[in-house]
Design a binder for these strands. Structure first.
Lengths: 220, 220
DNA sequence: TTGCTCGGTTAGTGAGCGTTAACCTCGTCA
DNA sequence: TGACGAGGTTAACGCTCACTAACCGAGCAA
């Protein structure tokens, strides 16, 4: 159960420290002894909780992928229920992703850095969840920006993920404004990027979009 | 030397394959035997060209950092010489970075993934080059968008780097439109993000921007 | 009390890997 | 012709590291 912010169980404690360490120095760069030491037990004691080092990484990556995807689905469901406009739904998606990116920096880092260290089956699962999450965004983005061809929408979503996930890469986070300001800034950047995506599609045209309502990126 | 597209020297060949392999499976994830095999020699033969595995990574990371920074400086110099507007300078910076991101995906990946595997001195050097490169962007961005506070400008630049560098993270690049379309799209996304950055700065106010003048993302 | 499980411990093992050693074979140049 | 250096080779060493074996003490149920 864990009423809410219970004392974290040993497993969770281990996963948390492992995430931090993996993000800092890479999966292969961290030894089991270090992970153990980080939670106050030492070395092979971990094997009472996990079958192996790989299993920790797998659980972390599958976990974050699932949380992202189900979080996204919940956004969509709530938006639909509340009868929100596509633009507001996109705002909700963006905010939720920003929360992940700012709160679980280590996991976000791992998520696109250590994926290939997984067993085939786990990697397939994570990839599938990622794909579904992307498609979920693509759908909303294309509702907000109907002029955007699907391929470009997908590429834009990937790019915006790169943008939103960029904060963990900062060497020292002190360079950032406070959390609220950063979140608001990232939100504006993401919306601005999407708005600019349908500028004029280059060669493969679709022409008609004219002055579109949704935003108003000043000049755009 | 090397008139232009000469047969690459052994060293260059090794560096190229090492970059590819490091990007695919991580620095610790690839053995020297594999790197050797990739260029047709085997294992310790590499030590005729490099003092060690670390040295290869160091040369790759220092190299790409230098190329990015000097490339950026050249952009600025040429723009100044031609008397271009700040907007056009920013366009040039963006295009140059996109060329890097699309042509040297492996290096871009390494650049923000394996930095901590370097010896202290090398890491410091790379970090310094990165910082200088960022500051160079920040200067131009603030010329184009004077309403943007410095901290937010810097964060925006980092975020846009994340955006521009996102393509390597795509599992299979076939999902992307052709190169020209992708480049144009990334360019629009980046400009759109910057344009949206100075929306209204949130809490920490600088107050006066209201309807602010300096805009005109459109034409640029 | 006895005995079992849970969560630790330390010591050890075996594989993988970076690196070195020793040796070989060309082409080049005096 | 003969020395030599550049660029390979294979064998071996030594370290790191994930994982296993064997043991142990506390809590707790019968």
């Amino acid at each position: 159960m864990s009423s809410r912010t219970d004392a974290p169980t040993r497993r969770e404690q281990i996963l948390g420290e492992a995430a931090r360490l993996f993000a800092e120095r890479g999966f292969h760069g961290v030894g089991v002894d270090e992970i153990g030491a980080a939670v106050g037990i030492s070395g092979p004691g971990l094997y009472r909780h996990f079958p192996g080092k790989d299993a920790m990484l797998a659980e972390l990556l599958v976990g974050i992928s699932e949380r992202l995807y189900t979080g996204g689905r919940r956004c969509l469901a709530e938006s639909a229920e509340a009868g929100l406009a596509p633009g507001a739904t996109l705002d909700a998606l963006i905010d939720r992703h920003i929360d992940f990116a700012l709160d679980d920096r280590a996991l976000i880092t791992l998520h696109d850095r250590e994926l290939d260290r997984l067993r085939d089956s786990d990697r397939k699962l994570v990839r599938q969840l990622q794909r579904q999450y992307v498609e979920l965004w693509v759908g909303v983005v294309r509702e907000v920006h109907p002029g955007l061809p699907e391929k470009e929408a997908r590429a834009s979503v990937h790019a915006v993920f790169g943008l939103l996930n960029s904060t963990p890469h900062l060497s020292r986070p002190s360079a950032l404004p406070d959390r609220a300001t950063t979140a608001a800034l990232l939100h504006r950047l993401a919306r601005g990027a999407f708005a600019a995506a349908e500028g004029r599609g280059g060669a493969d045209a679709d022409g008609a979009d004219g002055a579109d309502g949704a935003r108003g990126t000043a000049g755009a």
